[in-house]
């Protein structure tokens, strides 16, 4: 005959449950911070999170509302059907874009001829990295977002965007030259790493720079490589000689 064992339950007081809750909380927090740290260490900085992907295409959102510096921003409406890619007569000479971070000035040269000189806004909340880059894609418009807290931004219809990259700063870093409709403070750092320009200047540069614009999304190819972009701490221009100090 089987004698049933008495159903013994250990006596657990309130203190036991409090200790267990604290332990669970501690373990949970440890794993959260550890995972965040590992992710931060493995990820490089991305100038804007939405653009930090390798496959991009033109993105127009005329009814969206943007945010910059905690302020609501209404983007300009873009009607692609009413636009035709601008084809400019080609001049002779290699194209080269220089960005002088010290004077917040952009120069576009073709051979020895200065095609465009204008004020820009480079990185304020994250520095624009110096170096030699090439444009790898041109987008008539795209959405850009990133930053955190009060510096978070989300901007639809960013016009005339030209992403650039090199071996150290990859395509997924999302650095670009583009027009800015949300501020007009050129000549002073004002971006999260990109190079902001007046819309009319960005348009002129977009239509001039390689690869030649064939559609609202244009990739550089082996036969049509992107224009060289040199981001310099300071530039010295003496006649036809240009010295870029990184």
């Amino acid at each position: 005959m089987m004698v049933p064992l008495p159903n013994k339950k250990p006596q657990r007081d309130t203190g036991f449950y409090i200790k267990r809750s604290f332990l669970a909380l501690f373990v949970g927090l440890f794993f959260f911070f550890a995972t965040s740290f590992v992710i931060q260490q493995t990820q490089s900085f991305c100038a804007n999170s939405i653009s930090c992907i390798k496959d991009l295409s033109v993105n127009v959102e005329n009814n969206a509302v943007g945010v910059f510096e905690g302020q609501k921003v209404v983007p300009p409406k873009i009607t692609l059907s009413q636009e035709k890619p601008s084809v400019k007569p080609e001049r002779a000479g290699e194209k080269h874009i220089y960005v002088d971070l010290s004077s917040q000035t952009l120069y576009a040269f073709q051979g020895d001829s200065l095609v465009l000189k204008t004020l820009i806004s480079s990185g304020k909340w994250h520095p624009t990295p110096t170096g030699d880059y090439h444009i790898w894609i041109k987008l008539r418009a795209t959405r850009m977002s990133g930053g955190t807290g009060a510096d978070a931004y989300d901007l639809p219809n960013v016009p005339y965007t030209m992403f650039f990259y090199n071996d150290e700063v990859g395509k997924d870093a999302g650095f670009s030259l583009h027009g800015a409709y949300w501020h007009n403070n050129f000549g002073h750092p004002m971006s999260h790493g990109c190079v902001n320009m007046r819309i009319i200047d960005a348009q002129a540069l977009y239509n001039w720079a390689d690869p030649p614009t064939t559609d609202y999304t244009t990739y550089a190819t082996d036969t049509h490589p992107g224009t060289l972009v040199s981001v310099c701490s300071k530039i010295t221009i003496n006649g036809t000689t240009r010295e870029c100090i990184e």
């Binding site: 510096e69 302020q71 921003v73 501020h183 007009n184 403070n185 000549g187 002073h188």
Partner: peptide
């Protein structure tokens, strides 16, 4: 006065 932070804010 350097410029505009948004449509109504001067810096």
């Amino acid at each position: 006065v350097t410029g505009w932070a948004d449509p109504t804010l001067l810096i």
